[in-house]
């Protein structure tokens, strides 16, 4: 018993060190989304092209929901990846033009190219609040039933696509296969 007591401080130290060590690699900026496994919030807005749009117009398959703005520099960094995904038909990408001006958004799309099936215009940021958005860029993975399954905050580049999105997508597909 006395022998064991002798080791208590050392054990305590290692437990604390382990917890703190893990803490070093947690990103405090990455907040968990409250909308995971919840349906997309209801909306009735317009696209940046001026068409009316609501939940019924969303793709019937799995899709990405990308929050972007013409003011947003990291959005330019992830833009080639979104373009590739859309061009190669890997997954449909829907945009949310967040806290931006319509004219600036249209200019940005024609300057850089448009990877989006359509972009929902959210000038006031009100729809963003319903999604729990706190700044562009953010990307949500929405399944065929319109349920949000994954969120990534900040740049979605090829690495993030391979390491985070593909496994999440594969997991979802495996789930839906076992259900059928």
């Amino acid at each position: 018993m006395n022998r064991f007591n002798f080791f208590i401080p050392a054990i305590g130290f290692f437990v604390l060190a382990l917890i703190l060590w893990r803490g070093l690699y947690l990103d405090p900026k990455e907040l968990p989304s409250m909308l995971i496994d919840k349906p997309m919030p209801k909306f009735a807005l317009t696209t940046v092209d001026g068409n009316e749009i609501s939940n019924a117009d969303l793709p019937n398959s799995m899709f990405l929901l990308n929050v972007w703005g013409s003011y947003c520099l990291p959005c330019l960094i992830e833009h080639p990846t979104l373009m590739r995904l859309a061009e190669e038909g890997e997954i449909p990408v829907v945009g949310i033009n967040y806290r931006d001006k319509k004219q600036l958004a249209l200019g940005w799309l024609s300057d850089n190219g448009n990877p989006f099936a359509f972009s929902i215009l959210d000038e006031s940021g009100r729809f963003g609040i319903d999604l729990g958005v706190y700044g562009a860029p953010e990307t949500y993975l929405v399944d065929a039933d319109g349920v949000i399954r994954y969120r990534h905050v900040s740049v979605l580049d090829e690495n993030v696509w391979r390491q985070d999105f593909l496994p999440a997508i594969n997991k979802l597909q495996a789930e839906s296969n076992t259900q059928q």
Binding site: R99, S124, G125, R126, G128, I129, V133, Y134, G135
Partner: peptide, 11 residues
């Protein structure tokens, strides 16, 4: 002064 804070204050 962040954008989302402005929106949330308004809300």
């Amino acid at each position: 002064t962040g954008g989302v804070a402005e929106d949330l204050r308004r809300e």
